[in-house]
């Protein structure tokens, strides 16, 4: 158990808590945003990369939202964010979405303390462990790219429409089905950007990549075929019986 309290960053909706009444523990830094719906998952990942041990996103509880449904949007974004955090090795628990109603008795201080303790109990942020730091850092980069990938942004943007109303064929996609698809795509994009970064640093073989990332070589190869199709990667050279791939500069 570490001796210093964890560093918490809280992105807080401008309309969520009344500032005067707020008890803010000293290990919690508040960044005001206009709405939690505005929170880009890539920004949260960046926050972790810069040393935060936990990130809170605080906004208004539905049905209240100054921007109609920003908070609902944030729920979906956090869902994806948590998936990415698992993939990076930071763990889903390090981020928390807090949607409170103005009627709430408990003040911000209560929640902040509660989250602080949760993070404290998780132990050291893996990023601070020397042997893990570089891997996690690279993972965060890949996760950031993945979060900004067009495919994911499109899906996230359409989730509500597709799962709550109807898709282009007048059908509703079940939450489970959509989640499964999202999981698949989040993972694929994460792995592909991971491969991208690794092969950008130096040309790598399928086996090396598989070993570094702890996934099956056959899966790596399949991702590479898809990355080739998208112009992300190319063959660098063949060494003996092993092709090495390199990321394509321009993206």
């Amino acid at each position: 158990m570490e001796s210093n309290p964890p560093k918490i960053v809280c992105f807080m909706c401008n309309w969520a808590f009344c500032e005067e009444e707020m008890h803010v523990p000293y290990n919690v830094n508040i960044v005001r945003v206009m709405c939690v719906g505005r929170m880009d998952p890539a920004l949260v990942l960046e926050t972790f990369a810069n040393g935060a041990d936990g990130v809170m996103l605080a906004g208004c509880k539905p049905p209240d939202c100054h921007f109609v449904d920003g908070n609902l949007h944030s729920e979906r974004a956090v869902k994806m964010l948590k998936k990415l955090l698992v993939l990076t090795g930071l763990g889903a628990e390090r981020v928390k979405l807090l949607l409170v109603s103005p009627m709430e008795d408990k003040g911000f201080g209560y929640y902040a303390k509660e989250f602080s303790e949760e993070i404290w109990n998780l132990g050291d942020c893996p990023l601070k462990k020397a042997e893990l730091a570089s891997t996690i850092k690279a993972n965060i980069d890949a996760a950031k790219n993945a979060a900004s990938a067009f495919r994911l942004r499109v899906l996230l943007g359409r989730e509500e429409e597709l799962t709550e109303f109807m898709n282009a064929y007048g059908e509703k996609i079940s939450e489970e089905e959509f989640d499964a698809l999202l999981d698949e795509i989040v993972e694929a994009e994460f792995i592909r950007y991971k491969i991208y970064h690794l092969t950008k640093a130096k040309p790598c073989s399928v086996k090396e990549l598989a070993e570094t990332m702890g996934i099956k070589p056959s899966a790596v190869l399949r991702h590479i075929t898809n990355m080739r199709r998208k112009g992300m990667i190319a063959l660098d050279r063949v060494e003996g019986y092993t092709p090495l791939y390199k990321a394509l500069e321009v993206r």
Partner: peptide, 10 residues
Amino acid sequence: IVLRPSDGEI
């Protein structure tokens, strides 16, 4: 390039 689907080796 002829590759093995299992590991991408020639």
